[in-house]
Amino acid sequence: MQEEIIISGFGGQGVLSMGKILAYGGIMEGKEVTWMPSYGPEQRGGTANVTVILSDKRITSPVLNAYDTAIVLNQPSLDRFMPLLKPGGTLIYDPASILTPPTRTDINTYSIPAMSEAANMQNAKVFNMLLLGGLIHVRPIVTVENVVQGLHKTLPERHHHLIPMNEQAIRHGMEIITQEHKAEVK
């Protein structure tokens, strides 16, 4: 098994930390993982994306040209990464930040209203956990339990009291993701 994922959006949306928690979840599953940010180390704001690879064997290139799964959180990210999905791949987007919906028919498309849901919950910080929940629901590459373990590793101890809330958001994300399109196999 090797799952190649791109998560892309604006800086500050929690793109990089979502990737990190996912990668830690992978380690908990005993997988090899690679987390490769694309942004310049000194850059603040602007677009940010991260490539996360989870694999049962040694990972060769941490840089990829094609992906199994893309989570896109704004229009430029969708425009850039939808064409790079492998046929049969998975696209997850939040309709709140997408003007032109995805058009490819050979991929599985899911939408998740994470932004509006986070607003309903009056907690902008769970936005990326809702997405992560959605992701592991449609691509069960890591278990919720291992993602929570990942949270334990990623969050500093002073934030550990926030873990139950995050776990709740992950589980909620698993419920609110909906399939928009099923890949048509040629």
């Binding site: 990190k20 990668a23 992978g26 380690i27 997988k31 090899e32 993982v33 690679t34 987390w35 490769m36 940010p37 180390p41 990972i59 941490p62 840089v63």
Partner: peptide, 10 residues
């Protein structure tokens, strides 16, 4: 280099 230094792995 910058990519080995900045990327995360197990």
């Amino acid at each position: 280099d910058g990519s080995i230094g900045q990327m995360m792995e197990k």
